[in-house]
Amino acid sequence: MIDRTSRGIGSLPNEILISILSLFPTRTLLPMATTSRRIHNVILSIIHRRLLAAASVADRQLILECYHPSAKFSTPYYNCEYLGTDALDGESCGIEKETCSDLGRLRGLYSHFRPAQPEGDRKIWTPRPTGGWLQATLDQVTSQKEGLVCQNVDLESYELFCQLQSVVNIVKPGPNGYFSSSTKISEGLMRVWRDWLAERSQSPLSTTSTSSESREEQKKRLLWSSVKEDIGLRLRVVERTDLRPPLLRGRDEDPNVGYTLQYEELVVRTSQLLLKLEAALERERSHEGKAIVIVS
């Protein structure tokens, strides 16, 4: 009598399936998810664990650059402290859970970081009052050594918004303060509108604890750097009073205004972070001849 019992990969126990499929990079796993419901759920579990692990790789550092286009060379980069990664529906993704029925949900997960004030003898370039550029250290140009990273924004009466260029990289620190590798996660341009600044500065939570802040209020304070919403900054806004009024001002002109943006949180799409990090590890593998795959 012929044994018609299935001997395919789908007959293997979950533990063996996970061990086999974990050897593949994420971009290769995604097309396999359409094979069957069981393979789909196993791949979903693997990718979710990778997403949770990607943002906290021990030998890497996420850095943020955020500057006005005219101040690119005088604005330092910021090391970012890892705060955590969203969980799917508030739970760890398991193979048998109904919440793990859609790969598209994983794309909506974000990792959260806190930009830290730079300090030390790291060299940057600052503009000379007489023209040109002058080399200085961070300790010489950074007056605030504690608290949140801050960025001043000034708008003339005719300006409706200012622009901030943002770039997020994941780097591998090397000797003597240099980076042995760097991978760009995403970059974009944020428009910070006058009306948004005025509204956020009047919020009672702009300078206080956010523990009682509603989710809707948190969304209002989050500015995305692109329409894809891969990276964003959650900001506090404080109005400054150190501006001199203009000598002449028309009756219908808006006043010159100045604000301080406080970088409370950097938000990065976790799937983007995972795919870029795997690509960087693959390049390193091609040089070292060793396979590297993120596993939890």
Rank of each mutant, 00 (worst) to 15 (best):
M1T: 12
D3Q: 05
S6P: 04
R7N: 13
G8S: 13
I9Y: 09
S11Q: 10
S11A: 15
I16D: 13
L17G: 07
T28F: 08
L29R: 02
L29T: 10
L30E: 12
P31G: 14
T34P: 02
R38I: 11
I39K: 00
H40N: 13
N41V: 12
V42I: 14
I46S: 03
H48K: 00
H48N: 11
R49N: 14
L51P: 01
L52E: 10
A54R: 01
A55I: 05
V57H: 03
A58P: 00
C66R: 01
Y67F: 11
Y67N: 13
H68P: 00
P69I: 07
S70M: 08
S70W: 03
A71Y: 00
T75H: 05
Y78P: 01
Y78G: 04
Y78M: 12
C80F: 05
G84W: 02
G84T: 09
D86N: 04
A87F: 11
A87Y: 11
E96C: 08
K97L: 14
E98I: 11
T99F: 04
C100Q: 03
C100P: 02
G104M: 14
R107Y: 06
G108W: 05
L109A: 12
L109T: 01
L109N: 01
F113Y: 13
F113E: 07
A116E: 14
A116D: 11
Q117D: 03
E119T: 06
I124T: 08
I124H: 01
T126P: 06
R128A: 15
Q135E: 15
T137S: 09
L138H: 02
L138M: 10
V141W: 03
S143P: 00
S143Y: 04
C150M: 12
L155D: 08
F161Q: 07
L164V: 13
Q165D: 15
V167A: 11
V168S: 06
I170A: 10
K172L: 14
G174R: 02
G177R: 04
F179K: 08
S180T: 11
S182P: 00
T183S: 07
T183Q: 10
K184L: 15
E187Q: 09
M190W: 00
R191F: 09
W193L: 09
W193I: 09
D195K: 00
D195G: 00
W196F: 03
E199C: 05
E199A: 10
S201D: 08
Q202F: 09
S203R: 03
P204I: 15
L205F: 05
L205E: 14
L205A: 13
S206C: 13
S209E: 10
S209V: 08
S211I: 12
S214L: 14
E216L: 07
E217S: 05
L223W: 02
S225Y: 04
S225I: 03
S226T: 09
V227C: 06
V227Y: 03
I231G: 01
R236F: 12
V237M: 05
E239D: 06
R249P: 15
G250L: 07
E253H: 01
G258K: 01
G258E: 13
Q262D: 10
E265V: 04
V268L: 15
T270V: 10
L273V: 06
L275P: 00
K276W: 05
L277G: 06
A279C: 07
A280E: 14
A280W: 01
R285I: 11
R285P: 01
S286E: 15
H287K: 12
G289R: 03
K290G: 13
A291S: 09
